[in-house]
Amino acid sequence: MRPLALTGVSSLVALGAHPDDIEIAAGGLLLQLATANPGLAVRYVLATGTPARQAEARAAATAFLPGADLTFDLGTLPDGRLPAHWDTVKDQIERAAREARPDLVVAPWSGDAHQDHRTLGTLAPTAFRDALVLHYEIPKWDGDLGRPSVYVPLVEETARRKVSLLHTHFPSQSDRDWWDDEVFLGLARLRGMECRHRYAEAFHTQKLTLTLS
Rank of each mutant, 00 (worst) to 15 (best):
M1F: 14
R2L: 15
A5F: 08
A5M: 12
V9P: 13
S11P: 15
S11E: 10
L12D: 03
L12C: 03
L15R: 01
G16Y: 02
P19W: 06
L31P: 07
Q32D: 13
P38A: 11
A41I: 06
A41P: 14
V42K: 00
R43E: 09
Y44A: 05
Y44S: 11
V45C: 01
G49C: 02
T50E: 01
R53V: 11
E56D: 05
A61Y: 04
T62C: 09
A63I: 10
L65T: 11
A68K: 08
D69Q: 15
T71I: 14
F72V: 12
D73H: 12
G75H: 10
D79L: 01
R81E: 08
R81K: 13
L82E: 01
L82Q: 03
P83F: 08
P83D: 09
P83S: 12
H85N: 03
K90M: 12
D91V: 11
E94F: 08
R95Y: 09
A96R: 02
A96E: 01
E99C: 13
D103R: 02
W109R: 06
A113C: 12
T119N: 05
T122H: 08
T126W: 14
F128V: 09
R129N: 12
D130V: 13
L132Y: 02
V133C: 04
K140W: 09
W141E: 10
D142S: 15
D142R: 13
D144G: 07
G146R: 15
S149R: 15
V150D: 11
V150S: 12
Y151H: 03
R160G: 00
R160K: 06
K162H: 03
K162A: 02
H167W: 14
T168E: 05
T168Y: 02
P171Q: 05
Q173C: 07
R176H: 07
V183R: 04
V183P: 00
V183A: 03
L185T: 01
L187V: 14
L187D: 01
A188T: 09
R191M: 05
M193E: 13
Y199K: 03
A202Q: 05
T209A: 11
L210A: 13
L210T: 02
L212F: 11
